[in-house]
């Protein structure tokens, strides 16, 4: 490849800073073609279909009472769950990294289960403890707490897995120095540990929020999908698809897509900032 590169230095000015060779350029072309066919064109189709009927149609679909209720429930629950994760995630990561006790390896596996478990199975799993046959007498099926618990389950790993590696790399000497200078454990935590964990927590929170907003599978059996009560946005989109109302399905889907895009941008900004600092 080098011979080709060296053979045509003039080509470099073709683009600002492309280092592609003919072979890698072809590879990029094929990869982009597949990525476009699989992801970009279909997602564009959602956006185009959403605005196809004009702004009024879009707005009517999104502000339809039942749809608005679904969007509100989804977003509020996702925010609430993310707040719980912001507290619990770092605590779990802390215990996994700093504490030592028999059976800790089991906790490590428990953290990954929600990520690996098929979402419909996740719903069934929660149903077995929090459903009508609950051995502890808690029945939340078809009620709003069901949505909360389902989101809590599927978003469990995000902040934990983001914070854990950062906590492992954290220099203990700095903490000990702070302690030896008379800082209390709380002060050490707030002034020394927390600032270095913040980007990881923020990135995990963004993922956790996005996952909550887009959740579908785990709710199917658990929440009952009652209109205006436990129906989330994804379910609302699905019923529009099943009734062949593509325009309104696409309109609501576009709202979710915009939320996903915002999350992606936020993540990208956080990652760049961390990379620049580190």
């Amino acid at each position: 490849m080098t011979s080709i590169e060296l053979g045509r230095p003039a080509k470099i000015r073709r683009s600002a800073r492309s280092t592609l060779t003919p072979v890698s350029g072809l590879g990029l072309g094929i990869a982009m073609l597949w990525f476009s066919l699989l992801v970009l064109i279909p997602l564009t189709a959602v956006m185009v279909t959403a605005v196809d009927g004009g702004w009024d149609t879009f707005w009517a679909a999104v502000t339809n009472a039942q749809t608005a209720a679904a969007i509100r429930l989804t977003v509020f629950t996702a925010v609430g769950v993310t707040l719980v994760n912001i507290v619990m995630g770092p605590i779990i990561a802390w215990v996994l990294v700093r504490d030592r006790f028999p059976g800790k390896a089991v906790l490590e596996i428990l953290i990954d289960i929600p990520f690996a478990l098929p979402t419909i199975v996740a719903g069934l799993v929660l149903l077995s403890l929090y459903g009508s046959d609950s051995p502890i007498g808690i029945d939340i099926v078809n009620q709003r707490p069901a949505v909360f618990v389902a989101f809590l389950f599927v978003t469990l790993p995000f902040i934990v897995r983001m914070v854990q590696p950062v906590l492992e790399e954290l220099d203990r000497d700095v903490e000990e120095a702070a302690a030896s200078l008379g800082a209390s454990r709380f002060t050490t935590f707030r002034r020394v540990i927390l600032p270095s964990l913040t980007p990881a927590i923020a990135a995990g929170a963004a993922l956790s929020f996005a996952r909550g907003v887009s959740e579908y599978g785990s709710l199917v059996l658990l929440s009952g999908n009652l209109p205006n009560k436990t129906e989330v946005t994804s379910v609302r989109i699905l019923s529009s698809i099943e009734n062949d109302q593509r325009a309104s399905a696409a309109a609501v889907a576009a709202v979710l897509l915009v939320i996903s895009l915002v999350v992606i941008v936020v993540l990208d900004i956080i990652q760049r900032r961390v990379a620049r600092r580190g």
Binding site: V39, P42, L43, A45, V46, T119, L207, A210, R211, V213, S214, E215, Y216, G217, T233, S234, V235, I237, L238, I241, A249, A250, A253, L256, L257, S260, L261, V263, I264, L267
Partner: peptide, 14 residues
């Protein structure tokens, strides 16, 4: 990274 945060229903619709 987008596919990780898009709702599966939206994926199907798309």
């Amino acid at each position: 990274d987008l596919p990780l945060s898009v709702s599966p229903i939206v994926v199907g619709l798309a």
